[in-house]
Amino acid sequence: MPQYSLRFILLLPALLATLTGRAQAITGTIRDANTHEPVPYVNIGVLHKGVGTVADEQGTYRLNLAEAQPTDTVRISSLGFRPRLLRVQELRQQPAVELSPEAVVLREVKVKAKGMYKRTRTLGFRNPDASGTLNMSSNDLGTEIGSVINLSRKPTRVINANFNVAYNHSGPLTFRVNIYRLLPNGRPSQEKLLRRDVIVTSGIEKGTITVDLTPDQLILDEDFMLALEWIKGPANAKVQSQLAFVAGLGYANNDFYLRETSQASWERTSVGAYLAGMQPKISFYVTAQD
């Protein structure tokens, strides 16, 4: 009898830790307030805490709130819907959330006649043979990495987006391609310039992921940030160590940024002193016409 009692005592802390962890996690579904259909790949996160996730294609999410306080603010957002802000305690009480559709207002752009876009060029850091690598900043869904793209001429039509993978040991991963408007200080904003979710799944172990953006008729007259967001993958995937993108040094001003998960703040990354005016770059680029 004492033997069993001792075993129970030893197991009790682990059991309590497991139950506490489960209690800190919220599971729910995000739906369209009009149609009541699930909204796929919604971003959910606690502001200023680096705590977040992405709902699956059925709108179901699991958010670990072990590091959040009841009064912290959770932001829930998806392209084409009005973002919602809820306190953690409110989300605990009602984990099923509805988002209201929101009309997308397009910014006015001076458009050239179709025949005027004759010159095709590459914008960004293209070098697939650069010797450096860069990883995602966490293993949480919604972790994202992006590079500022500077236009040579304005307006410019974006044809495709390209991401050079140095290695991928995680297997097939699903990403969302995001293009963000820049703030006056050159940092990325939360505003997306694509008017649809561009989702791509790739199991490429090394090489270039190319995403066709011609259906979007994306014509821009401003610099922007091109980003890749991890939204789905194998269970327990460790993209922080198992996935890396090609990086190197270059002279162009293509700053890159990272964020840990959904709704987290963007962090400008520095990998040491600049060399003779050269700066660290990640090999993200677009093919464009002007």
Results as ranks from 00 to 15, higher is better:
89 Q>E: 07
256 F>C: 07
162 N>I: 00
136 M>Q: 13
231 I>M: 01
116 M>K: 14
241 S>R: 11
182 L>F: 15
204 I>F: 00
266 W>K: 08
213 L>G: 08
73 T>C: 00
60 T>Q: 03
5 S>D: 03
186 G>W: 06
154 K>D: 01
116 M>F: 06
216 D>S: 14
20 T>V: 05
182 L>P: 03
174 T>E: 05
123 L>T: 04
250 G>K: 08
231 I>E: 00
77 S>Q: 13
56 D>H: 00
283 S>G: 08
178 N>H: 10
8 F>Q: 14
25 A>W: 15
267 E>M: 15
36 H>W: 08
159 I>E: 11
151 L>A: 02
212 D>T: 07
246 V>C: 07
232 K>M: 03
89 Q>T: 02
245 F>A: 01
143 T>E: 02
56 D>T: 00
84 R>D: 04
221 D>Y: 13
243 L>D: 05
5 S>I: 13
78 S>T: 08
99 L>R: 10
149 I>Y: 15
34 N>K: 04
53 T>P: 06
44 I>A: 02
256 F>R: 12
145 I>A: 09
143 T>A: 11
233 G>D: 05
12 L>M: 14
37 E>H: 03
190 Q>Y: 12
149 I>Q: 14
69 Q>L: 11
201 T>D: 06
30 I>M: 07
157 R>Y: 08
172 P>W: 11
196 R>L: 02
274 Y>N: 15
260 E>S: 15
122 T>C: 08
11 L>F: 14
280 P>E: 07
22 R>Y: 13
86 L>A: 06
254 N>A: 06
217 Q>D: 15
232 K>V: 03
223 D>C: 04
181 R>M: 05
100 S>G: 04
18 T>N: 12
172 P>G: 09
266 W>F: 02
36 H>V: 00
100 S>E: 12
